[in-house]
Design a protein around this nucleic acid. Structure first.
Lengths: 188, 188
DNA sequence: TACAATAGCTAATGTGATTAGCTTTTTCGG
DNA sequence: CCGAAAAAGCTAATCACATTAGCTATTGTA
């Protein structure tokens, strides 16, 4: 019996599985059960095996996040755009912990595709920064700083207990304001 | 034949293997070959299996890094301490990419031990910040900001090509100065 | 020196990925 | 509408590791 599911459908379901369990929980065996087929059949969709599926999940995640953070900054600029962008990133991670884990695997694959998939997100950050009067080089630096911070904060947040008296929310706010302050300094 | 290697020796060798290949490249099979024994024998040292070894590698890495960055800031204060600390972190990661990967697995384990292992590093950051006149809460925020940035930057750096005209060195400098500027602003 | 603990070994099992080769559906050009 | 041919499944078999069970040799010490 055919399932009628496209390659994209399967990737989406695999991404959901990652969020439900963890990125490592997405096995061909488990995915096959979920789809009601046998695991060898998955090679008809992903001839490159689990590796190919993982790459696709990773790319899917970046595209999804790109879309969400792009939405978040529409019609905004300066600090508003910047802050809302960062919040959207953080919110995405909190709702997609397993997928985000898989997204970090861009390490293991060719940077090429990942670059294309995440350049949207980078572009959004760039545009949010366009009104700050930075040079091109400063803009590159700033994008990297933000990316590094967001990525690191998200990784830490996913794993740290929420019982510390100083909340992560406040720390996130503090860091954004501090970095914005630093960026403002540059112009002086 | 006995190898005469202690548990700590084996963890150290496993950490070297991680750096030579990758964190995932540390399998019981490969490690056993490296040690000249059979893989089931490793259960005599790590009754908890591969999982226990991975946890130990993770802890070993944090202790090692703690020592190095502590060394790096001895006798320094303010911006000097701060900047040298960050450089030491980054240098550690560049020399221990595989181990650093394994260190990120603190996610998967009890935070307890990792907290103890990395609290040294956090303490160093705290002390480096002590001369900035921040409130306790601001200090917590700042430590988190720095940790997030360092962790994110390191992850990005490990995987990004070095062919971009704007170097990562410059971006790292830029980010540190920007954050320092932002921190200085707080006092105003 | 005897003996308990230690550290090794072989054989066997289990899980998941992957491959090979066969079968059933679809799809589509004629 | 018919018959390839492609697509999407399936079963059986193999492989790589991790892990377990049970046996043996070494060692350090009472």
């Amino acid at each position: 019996m055919r399932t009628g599911l496209s390659r994209e459908d399967i990737i989406k379901i695999a991404a959901e599985m990652a969020d439900e369990k963890s990125a490592a929980g997405v096995t061909f065996k488990a995915l096959a059960v979920r789809l009601g087929i046998k695991s060898p059949s998955l090679y008809k969709h992903f001839s490159g095996g689990l590796d190919e599926l993982n790459r696709e999940i990773m790319l899917y995640g970046w595209r999804l996040m790109d879309g969400e953070i792009t939405q978040a900054v529409i019609g905004k600029e300066k600090d508003d755009a910047f802050i809302d962008l960062c919040y959207a990133y953080r919110k995405f991670v909190s709702r997609h912990q397993g997928l985000y884990e898989a997204m970090q695997w861009y390490n293991m694959y060719d940077s090429e595709e990942h670059l294309r998939a995440s350049e949207g997100a980078v572009g959004v950050i760039c545009r949010a920064l366009s009104s700050y009067g930075l040079t091109e080089e400063q803009k590159v630096h700033t994008v990297r700083m933000i990316r590094a911070f967001l990525q690191g904060f998200s990784t830490i947040e996913v794993n740290i207990g929420k019982d510390h008296p100083v909340t992560l929310d406040d720390s996130f706010d503090f860091a954004l304001k501090t970095m914005l302050g630093g960026i403002a300094d540059i112009q002086r």
